[in-house]
Write a protein that binds this DNA or RNA. Structure first.
Length: 493
RNA sequence: GUCCCCAUCGUCUAGUCAGGUCCAGGACACCGGCCUUUCACGCCGGCAACACCGGUUCAAAUCCGGUUGGGGACGCCA
């Protein structure tokens, strides 16, 4: 069997969004599964909207997700000559013709058709212009586009879609579409096919929004006498109102970069995206790269569109809750070394990284991450809610401050007293700290919880956290004593 | 207006091709409980869906037809 070759062809007119990322993921999985190749091709033929920033953003996004490619990035504009040559061939073989209708004329006809509730497609005005007439108009200086001459055959045009099955359309429903602009620049419909033929693409996995393009491109393959690749049209990703996800109307929450900045694990996003429109047919929901690559298949892609369930303005569910849950799952179950590697850049960014975490304090670093990760949602939490584990400079959350400390003014003296008891311990461990804490509460006639919760707030700034005595041991005797001795500032304002 | 695609819990979905084992299974979310020095994690339990109508059949979520609903496309954008 011939080598599987797929491609991911973004147009650089904006950042990489989750729909595009999922398309890239499905292509990548398919290529890897078949030991095939993935080509990255930047389709930059829209000169007005293409930007270098978009190109960089898309490439960064793919790299962050870990979706690597084997060839490219190729740039579509580098192959404009191929596209024009193909158009010339189509003209010569009678598969295309020159059309002198102006934009204005066409727009007017289109509007009129729509207003009269008629089909707005091209009416074929220039389809049968004679060679002489063409030459005359060209000599006259009239600009012309090149249109593909859709065969006027009876019957149906079709292709077999790996996801949707046989897709049919009457020839008469396909209008003569433009393949080259009047300024000589080729258009997507043509360029895309010419490039896919040259790049020997065997499988085209793309969104269902391309289905009408596919019916037209099938004709192009035929006219160019090239073998038809396999098509797989994947369902679209919609918002809660069932609108197609787009960069302009949904903002950053649909941008891959947003998840990178928010501290999501790249593989968690991939895992989520894989499940948005595909399932393995078993109840497994978490997959390693290897597992997903082995399990993925085009025929288990859903036919129906799926909803990316996020509510703008919701603090807790700022993105799809399932994505958050998957991210938390990986946060909690990742091997400590892998987690350590992911957290390192976050701590570095926050100025909390200590070179010793890669050396003598490696095990302390990893143990600490494992201790605190159960309550976290993203990697960023390690530098925010988890800041006190890595630095003496941390904020005290006002809520627990009021509830656990200010509520009991006596703590202003109790905490330093507790610090003194801890300082006196020759063996600072789980048992000794708990015993002395409970003893003190007993002597004062208060519940141990008063001291414990006050300590948690003073030592970590947080309302919630791991078992208090685990925290003590993790922070170490010196830090605990230092922080508990100086609680005056908590009462400052 | 035309063409194409789709339709199971709030969301992602299993089951549909090969009708019965489905008064519909899982996950997330939500609610309750257990655990507990806090909050989580974890565990246990609960709520919640076959769009509608008709046909075929002993039997339909599953097959057929229609209706409704949703989406996509109809650019000298990609």
């Amino acid at each position: 069997m011939a080598e599987v070759r797929v491609r991911f062809p973004p147009s650089p007119t904006g950042y990489l969004h989750i729909g595009g990322a999922r398309t890239a993921l499905y292509n990548w999985l398919f290529a890897r599964q078949h030991q095939g190749k993935m080509v990255l091709r930047i389709e930059d033929t829209d000169e007005e909207r293409s930007t270098q920033a978009s190109i960089d953003g898309i490439i960064d996004g793919l790299r962050w997700l870990g979706l690597d490619w084997d060839e490219g990035p190729y740039f579509q504009t580098d192959h404009a000559a191929d596209h024009v040559a193909a158009a010339e061939r189509l003209l010569a073989s009678g598969h295309a013709y020159k059309c002198f209708c102006t934009k204005e004329e066409l727009e007017q006809k289109r509007e009129q058709a729509l207003a009269e509730k008629r089909d707005p497609g091209y009416d074929g005005t220039c389809r049968n212009l004679g060679a002489e007439e063409c030459s005359r108009r060209e000599a006259d200086g009239q600009a012309a586009v090149i249109r593909f001459k859709v065969p006027r055959r009876p019957g149906l045009l079709f292709y077999n879609d790996e996801v949707l099955g046989r897709i049919e359309r009457a020839y008469s429903d396909v209008e003569d579409f433009v393949i080259v602009r009047s300024n000589g620049k080729p258009l997507y419909l043509l360029s895309n096919v010419v490039d896919d033929i040259r790049d020997r693409i065997t499988h085209i996995i793309r969104g269902q929004d391309h289905m009408t393009n596919t019916t037209r491109q099938v004709l192009l393959y035929e006219a160019l006498e090239a073998p038809l690749p396999v098509f797989a049209h994947i369902p679209l990703t919609l918002d809660i109102q069932k609108r197609k996800i787009s960069k302009r109307s949904h903002g950053e929450v649909v941008a891959v970069q947003f998840y990178q900045e928010r501290g999501f694990l790249p593989w968690a996003l991939c895992n989520f995206l894989a499940l948005l429109g595909w399932n393995p047919g078993t109840e497994q929901e978490y997959f390693s790269r290897e597992e997903l690559t082995a399990t993925f298949s085009l025929d288990r892609i859903n036919r129906a569109n799926s909803v990316f369930n996020f509510k703008p303005g919701d603090d807790k569910f700022f993105t799809d809750p399932k994505l958050i849950a998957i991210n938390e799952h990986y946060l909690r179950n990742l091997d400590p070394e892998q987690l350590g590697a992911l957290v390192q850049p976050v701590l570095e960014q926050a100025g909390l990284w200590d070179a010793a975490y890669a050396g003598p304090r490696r095990s302390w670093y990893l143990d600490t991450l494992v201790l605190i990760r159960d309550r976290f949602h993203t990697l960023n939490d390690f530098a925010e809610a988890g800041r006190a584990y890595f630095s003496d400079q941390y904020d005290i959350d006002p809520k627990p401050l009021a509830k656990n400390i200010l509520k009991h003014p006596e703590l202003k003296t109790w905490l330093p007293q507790l610090a003194a008891r801890f300082a006196a311990l020759s063996n600072f461990n789980l048992e000794s700290t708990e015993t002395s804490c409970r003893q003190m509460a007993d002597e004062l006639g208060i519940k141990p919880g008063v001291l414990i919760n006050a300590m948690r707030t003073a030592l970590t700034g947080q309302l919630a956290g791991p078992s208090m005595f685990d925290i003590l041991i993790t922070l170490g005797q010196d830090t605990v004593v230092r922080r508990l001795s100086r609680v005056d500032h908590l009462y400052a304002s």
